[in-house]
Design a protein around this nucleic acid. Sequence first.
DNA 1: GCCAACGTTGGC
DNA 2: GCCAACGTTGGC
Length: 155
Amino acid sequence: MQYWLMKSEPDEVSIDDALAAPGQTVPWTGVRNYQARNFMRDAMRVGDGVLFYHSSCAEPGIAGLAEVASTPYPDPTQFDPASKYHDPKATQEQPRWMLVDVRAVKKTPLIPLSTLRAQDELADMVILQRGSRLSITPVTPGQWRFITEQLMPRD
DNA sequence: GCCAACGTTGGC
DNA sequence: GCCAACGTTGGC
């Protein structure tokens, strides 16, 4: 079991959108960075824990919990000329971009980026490093435990 | 393979 | 909208 943080722009897909989707599951389309793709293609397993992060918005931060819900498969948007994620160099025979489905588990009170930064225990989190822009990053078990047990209220 | 130019990310 | 940081592209 591994843990991940996955960024989504709430204008595109928010935690509420994901919870409202069929099966509370959305395909994680639009990733066009090789490192992030490789995490989905090579490292993720069904059931892995996901911190659902809202980025590029008024209040960036962790907005909910989710889990990896599928094995990797080609991102269909790469084949769609009408999509802004269209990749003319991708073919059905040789897809370039792979994704997984993500199932939203629950919405949580937003944990703002500033709160994450204020925690000594989270100093090593990848997204908090200077210049870090990667939209999918691994989270250590210790970081996961701290965030879910210390920064999220009990049900 | 180098590297300058350009594009993107994402917080502020 | 600004801009730092980083990734990608493409000429050589």
